[in-house]
Write a protein that binds this DNA or RNA. Structure first.
Lengths: 186, 186
DNA sequence: CAGTATATGGTACGACTGTTTCAACAATGG
DNA sequence: CCATTGTTGAAACAGTCGTACCATATACTG
């Protein structure tokens, strides 16, 4: 009885909305331009997602899913040394093609500082990397449950990304990562 | 002939506006609430600063000035070891009282990713620390013109601040700094 | 076919934004 | 006093924003 719902439409919209947000950023996101770019209407976006905030949450979840997938694809599991892993991750995340993802990470972080209630799983997005990372750098860490080394490694990555995205000085930031690897070796 | 201009008013407004921005953040800044909190009007803010963007620029410059002054006050110049300096900076910048400054740094960075034209001196705000920092950690760096070590040190700071402000896990981030100091020692 | 559910367009509301316009007021110099 | 110049208030302009309301179109079941 009645027309059947079409969940595929929502998912297709979500995918394209994620493209749009990655391309244009989160900060100035507005329903009308977004809808226009997606050949739909604000009306339909709210119909499918309930509110702008829920749409944003869905987009961020989708972006995280994509990021994790892409990273897994590009970092073969069979371990070279931990150092090579580290360099691999840096080369991947700092590449210009990842700029949209990196920008999104920083935008979400900044907005989360003012409105933490909108990002209930932010903390998990930080510590979630430790499982991923912990496996690859286990030989650096003193013991398997060590969270300190992954914390430091991720901090170096994020800090260097902050620097790189601000100054654009790839040479200096690359050298700084070299220096960090050097420190880890001894 | 005529009433003399009153530059003191502008400066007083700037000081209080900086307080307000530090307290409420940059992201949602709006002239009307700001003016109300400052017992003035949007009209006067624009009269004094020309436009919202120029007001923001002035506020950021003032905030930077304050931050540099406060940091200088709290880190006595006569050198203990570089490691103690590092720990001192971290203790200072990661203290809860600095949260407004830290938030502002990240907010400006995030907004600058979308609108770099509004922050022409952002890159300098990064590399500017190297002079300050270079002096205190000279014995860590291989030579006086080394920019790589300061880059790495600042990256660790900023990355750990990113983590701390997201997860709130002070213990883990403090330990990560310990670990970094340890690495630097060898 | 009627009935019922989803899907969708159009439109408007109310609140907000930075900025401008026009007026009046205040203090000073001639 | 009066002209000049700086200062300030009130209101409006021209937008944008997320969202709600109302009607209609579409596709399915009984």
């Amino acid at each position: 009885m009645g027309r059947p719902p079409d969940p595929a439409r929502r998912e297709a919209t979500l995918a394209r909305a994620t493209d749009y947000v990655l391309a244009h950023g989160l900060a100035g996101l507005s329903l009308r331009p977004l809808a226009a770019a997606l050949d739909t209407s604000p009306r339909m976006l709210l119909y499918d997602f309930g509110s702008k905030q829920e749409l944003v949450s869905a987009v961020l979840a989708e972006a995280r899913r994509r990021g994790a997938t892409r990273l897994a694809e590009n970092l073969p599991a069979q371990a070279a040394s931990a150092e090579e892993h580290l360099r691999g991750i840096w080369a991947w995340i700092s590449a210009p093609e990842r700029a949209p993802y990196v920008r999104l990470i920083f935008e979400v972080h900044a907005d989360g500082l003012a409105h933490p209630e909108n990002y209930p799983d932010q903390a998990e997005a930080i510590t979630g990397w430790f499982d991923t990372l912990g496996a690859t750098i286990r030989d650096i860490a003193t013991d398997p449950d060590d969270t300190v080394t992954p914390t430091l490694v991720m901090a170096v990555m994020r800090g260097l990304l902050f620097d790189l995205t601000t100054t654009g000085d790839r040479r200096r930031t690359d050298l700084a990562l070299d220096r960090f690897c050097e420190l880890l070796r001894h």
